[in-house]
Computed example of a mutant assay.
Amino acid sequence: MSSADTASAWLLVVLCAVSGAYCLRQVRRSGGAAAGEAVMAFGMALMAVPLGDRDGWQALVLGAVFCAAALHAVWLLRGGVHHAHHLVGSLAMAYMSLTAAAGHGHGAGPSLVTGLLLLYFAGYVLLGGARLVTAGGDAQGGYPGGYPVASAELSRACRLAMGMGMLAMLLMM
Protein backbone atom coordinates (compact mmCIF):
# COMPACT_ATOMS: atom_id res chain seq x y z
CA MET A 1 0.00 0.00 0.00
CA SER A 2 1.47 3.36 -1.03
CA SER A 3 1.74 6.25 1.40
CA ALA A 4 -1.06 8.07 -0.46
CA ASP A 5 -3.31 4.99 -0.11
CA THR A 6 -2.43 4.73 3.57
CA ALA A 7 -3.18 8.42 4.14
CA SER A 8 -6.50 8.08 2.30
CA ALA A 9 -7.40 5.01 4.36
CA TRP A 10 -6.67 6.84 7.62
CA LEU A 11 -8.75 9.82 6.49
CA LEU A 12 -11.62 7.43 5.81
CA VAL A 13 -11.14 5.92 9.28
CA VAL A 14 -11.36 9.36 10.88
CA LEU A 15 -14.39 10.37 8.79
CA CYS A 16 -16.28 7.21 9.71
CA ALA A 17 -15.28 7.35 13.39
CA VAL A 18 -16.42 10.99 13.70
CA SER A 19 -19.71 10.12 11.98
CA GLY A 20 -20.13 7.18 14.38
CA ALA A 21 -19.45 9.37 17.39
CA TYR A 22 -22.03 11.91 16.21
CA CYS A 23 -24.62 9.17 15.62
CA LEU A 24 -23.88 7.71 19.05
CA ARG A 25 -24.44 11.15 20.55
CA GLN A 26 -27.82 11.30 18.76
CA VAL A 27 -29.06 7.93 20.08
CA ARG A 28 -30.85 9.41 23.10
CA ARG A 29 -32.46 12.20 21.07
CA SER A 30 -33.65 9.84 18.35
CA GLY A 31 -35.10 7.23 20.67
CA GLY A 32 -32.40 4.76 19.63
CA ALA A 33 -32.90 5.16 15.86
CA ALA A 34 -29.33 6.40 15.35
CA ALA A 35 -27.79 3.31 17.01
CA GLY A 36 -27.74 1.36 13.74
CA GLU A 37 -25.99 4.22 11.98
CA ALA A 38 -23.43 4.43 14.78
CA VAL A 39 -22.68 0.69 14.51
CA MET A 40 -22.29 1.02 10.73
CA ALA A 41 -20.00 4.03 11.00
CA PHE A 42 -17.74 2.44 13.61
CA GLY A 43 -17.69 -0.80 11.60
CA MET A 44 -16.73 1.12 8.48
CA ALA A 45 -13.95 2.81 10.44
CA LEU A 46 -12.65 -0.60 11.57
CA MET A 47 -12.79 -1.98 8.04
CA ALA A 48 -10.91 1.02 6.65
CA VAL A 49 -7.94 0.69 9.04
CA PRO A 50 -4.95 -0.02 6.78
CA LEU A 51 -3.63 -3.24 8.32
CA GLY A 52 -2.34 -4.76 5.09
CA ASP A 53 -3.68 -8.25 4.50
CA ARG A 54 -6.26 -9.07 7.14
CA ASP A 55 -6.31 -12.43 8.77
CA GLY A 56 -9.45 -14.40 7.92
CA TRP A 57 -10.82 -14.24 11.46
CA GLN A 58 -10.86 -10.42 11.54
CA ALA A 59 -12.91 -10.21 8.37
CA LEU A 60 -15.20 -13.01 9.57
CA VAL A 61 -15.87 -11.21 12.87
CA LEU A 62 -16.70 -8.00 11.00
CA GLY A 63 -18.87 -10.01 8.61
CA ALA A 64 -20.79 -11.47 11.55
CA VAL A 65 -21.29 -7.99 13.05
CA PHE A 66 -22.65 -6.68 9.75
CA CYS A 67 -24.89 -9.72 9.29
CA ALA A 68 -26.34 -8.97 12.74
CA ALA A 69 -26.77 -5.34 11.67
CA ALA A 70 -28.61 -6.58 8.55
CA LEU A 71 -30.99 -8.59 10.75
CA HIS A 72 -31.58 -5.46 12.83
CA ALA A 73 -32.29 -3.54 9.61
CA VAL A 74 -34.84 -6.18 8.60
CA TRP A 75 -36.49 -5.64 11.99
CA LEU A 76 -36.50 -1.86 11.36
CA LEU A 77 -38.33 -2.38 8.07
CA ARG A 78 -41.47 -2.89 10.16
CA GLY A 79 -41.40 0.89 10.65
CA GLY A 80 -41.35 1.63 6.93
CA VAL A 81 -39.43 1.13 3.74
CA HIS A 82 -37.27 4.18 4.50
CA HIS A 83 -35.12 1.81 6.58
CA ALA A 84 -34.18 -0.21 3.47
CA HIS A 85 -30.96 1.79 3.10
CA HIS A 86 -29.76 0.39 6.42
CA LEU A 87 -30.35 -3.11 5.09
CA VAL A 88 -28.46 -2.40 1.86
CA GLY A 89 -25.59 -0.82 3.79
CA SER A 90 -25.36 -3.70 6.27
CA LEU A 91 -25.43 -6.30 3.52
CA ALA A 92 -22.80 -4.35 1.54
CA MET A 93 -20.50 -4.28 4.57
CA ALA A 94 -21.05 -7.99 5.20
CA TYR A 95 -20.33 -8.68 1.52
CA MET A 96 -17.07 -6.69 1.63
CA SER A 97 -15.99 -8.37 4.87
CA LEU A 98 -16.69 -11.87 3.63
CA THR A 99 -15.11 -11.12 0.24
CA ALA A 100 -11.97 -9.95 2.04
CA ALA A 101 -12.00 -13.09 4.23
CA ALA A 102 -12.22 -15.28 1.14
CA GLY A 103 -9.37 -13.34 -0.48
CA HIS A 104 -11.41 -12.29 -3.50
CA GLY A 105 -10.77 -8.55 -3.28
CA HIS A 106 -8.62 -6.78 -5.90
CA GLY A 107 -9.51 -9.21 -8.68
CA ALA A 108 -9.55 -8.57 -12.43
CA GLY A 109 -12.55 -6.30 -12.13
CA PRO A 110 -15.64 -5.67 -10.07
CA SER A 111 -18.15 -8.47 -9.73
CA LEU A 112 -21.78 -7.92 -10.61
CA VAL A 113 -22.65 -7.47 -6.91
CA THR A 114 -19.86 -4.92 -6.46
CA GLY A 115 -20.99 -3.07 -9.59
CA LEU A 116 -24.60 -2.93 -8.41
CA LEU A 117 -23.51 -1.69 -4.98
CA LEU A 118 -21.32 0.95 -6.63
CA LEU A 119 -24.30 2.16 -8.66
CA TYR A 120 -26.55 2.22 -5.59
CA PHE A 121 -24.11 4.17 -3.41
CA ALA A 122 -23.12 6.56 -6.22
CA GLY A 123 -26.82 7.39 -6.62
CA TYR A 124 -27.25 7.65 -2.85
CA VAL A 125 -24.34 10.09 -2.58
CA LEU A 126 -25.53 12.22 -5.49
CA LEU A 127 -29.09 12.35 -4.16
CA GLY A 128 -27.91 12.99 -0.60
CA GLY A 129 -25.61 15.77 -1.76
CA ALA A 130 -28.41 17.40 -3.74
CA ARG A 131 -30.74 17.17 -0.72
CA LEU A 132 -28.11 18.68 1.55
CA VAL A 133 -27.46 21.58 -0.82
CA THR A 134 -31.16 22.34 -1.29
CA ALA A 135 -32.08 21.83 2.39
CA GLY A 136 -33.42 24.81 4.21
CA GLY A 137 -35.22 25.39 7.46
CA ASP A 138 -38.51 27.17 7.85
CA ALA A 139 -38.96 30.78 8.91
CA GLN A 140 -38.63 29.85 12.60
CA GLY A 141 -35.15 28.42 11.99
CA GLY A 142 -36.02 24.75 12.22
CA TYR A 143 -37.25 21.70 10.36
CA PRO A 144 -40.53 19.85 10.69
CA GLY A 145 -40.33 17.52 13.66
CA GLY A 146 -38.65 20.08 15.89
CA TYR A 147 -35.04 19.51 14.82
CA PRO A 148 -32.95 22.66 14.74
CA VAL A 149 -31.43 23.48 11.35
CA ALA A 150 -27.89 22.65 12.41
CA SER A 151 -28.86 19.23 13.80
CA ALA A 152 -30.85 18.19 10.72
CA GLU A 153 -28.15 19.37 8.33
CA LEU A 154 -25.41 17.72 10.37
CA SER A 155 -27.33 14.43 10.36
CA ARG A 156 -27.67 14.64 6.58
CA ALA A 157 -23.98 15.46 6.25
CA CYS A 158 -23.06 12.43 8.39
CA ARG A 159 -25.21 10.14 6.25
CA LEU A 160 -23.63 11.62 3.14
CA ALA A 161 -20.13 11.12 4.58
CA MET A 162 -20.90 7.47 5.38
CA GLY A 163 -22.29 7.00 1.86
CA MET A 164 -19.09 8.44 0.40
CA GLY A 165 -17.05 6.19 2.69
CA MET A 166 -19.01 3.16 1.48
CA LEU A 167 -18.46 4.22 -2.12
CA ALA A 168 -14.71 4.62 -1.48
CA MET A 169 -14.45 1.18 0.12
CA LEU A 170 -16.33 -0.43 -2.75
CA LEU A 171 -14.03 1.28 -5.24
CA MET A 172 -11.02 -0.19 -3.40
CA MET A 173 -12.33 -3.75 -3.79
Rank of each mutant, 00 (worst) to 15 (best):
1 M>F: 07
2 S>E: 06
3 S>D: 12
4 A>C: 01
4 A>P: 08
4 A>H: 14
6 T>L: 11
6 T>S: 03
7 A>I: 10
8 S>Y: 10
10 W>L: 10
11 L>N: 14
11 L>F: 13
11 L>A: 15
12 L>P: 00
12 L>K: 07
13 V>H: 04
15 L>M: 12
15 L>T: 14
18 V>F: 14
18 V>P: 02
18 V>G: 05
21 A>Y: 06
25 R>V: 10
25 R>Q: 07
32 G>L: 07
34 A>W: 13
35 A>H: 07
36 G>T: 12
38 A>M: 05
38 A>P: 00
39 V>T: 10
39 V>E: 00
40 M>F: 04
41 A>W: 05
44 M>P: 03
44 M>V: 06
45 A>M: 03
45 A>H: 03
45 A>V: 06
46 L>K: 02
48 A>L: 05
48 A>S: 08
48 A>T: 09
48 A>Y: 05
50 P>H: 04
50 P>C: 07
52 G>I: 03
52 G>Q: 01
53 D>H: 04
54 R>F: 04
55 D>W: 12
56 G>F: 00
57 W>Y: 08
58 Q>S: 03
59 A>R: 04
60 L>S: 06
61 V>Y: 03
61 V>E: 01
70 A>T: 05
70 A>W: 05
71 L>W: 13
72 H>K: 15
75 W>T: 13
75 W>P: 14
75 W>V: 11
76 L>H: 12
78 R>W: 09
78 R>K: 14
79 G>Q: 15
81 V>I: 14
82 H>T: 15
83 H>R: 11
86 H>A: 11
88 V>M: 08
88 V>E: 02
89 G>K: 05
89 G>Y: 10
90 S>F: 05
90 S>G: 06
92 A>D: 01
92 A>F: 01
93 M>L: 15
94 A>M: 03
94 A>R: 02
95 Y>Q: 00
96 M>S: 02
97 S>L: 02
97 S>I: 02
98 L>T: 00
98 L>G: 01
99 T>S: 10
100 A>L: 04
102 A>F: 00
103 G>H: 00
105 G>Q: 11
105 G>T: 15
112 L>S: 06
112 L>R: 12
115 G>Q: 11
116 L>M: 13
116 L>V: 13
117 L>F: 10
118 L>D: 06
121 F>Q: 02
121 F>K: 06
122 A>L: 15
124 Y>L: 14
128 G>H: 05
128 G>P: 08
130 A>C: 11
131 R>I: 08
132 L>V: 09
133 V>N: 06
134 T>M: 13
135 A>T: 05
141 G>Q: 08
141 G>C: 09
141 G>K: 11
143 Y>L: 03
143 Y>R: 03
144 P>Q: 12
144 P>V: 06
147 Y>C: 15
147 Y>P: 03
149 V>W: 08
150 A>G: 14
150 A>T: 10
151 S>Y: 09
152 A>R: 13
154 L>H: 12
156 R>W: 08
160 L>Q: 04
162 M>W: 01
162 M>C: 13
162 M>P: 00
163 G>N: 09
168 A>F: 09
168 A>G: 02
171 L>I: 08
171 L>W: 09
173 M>C: 04
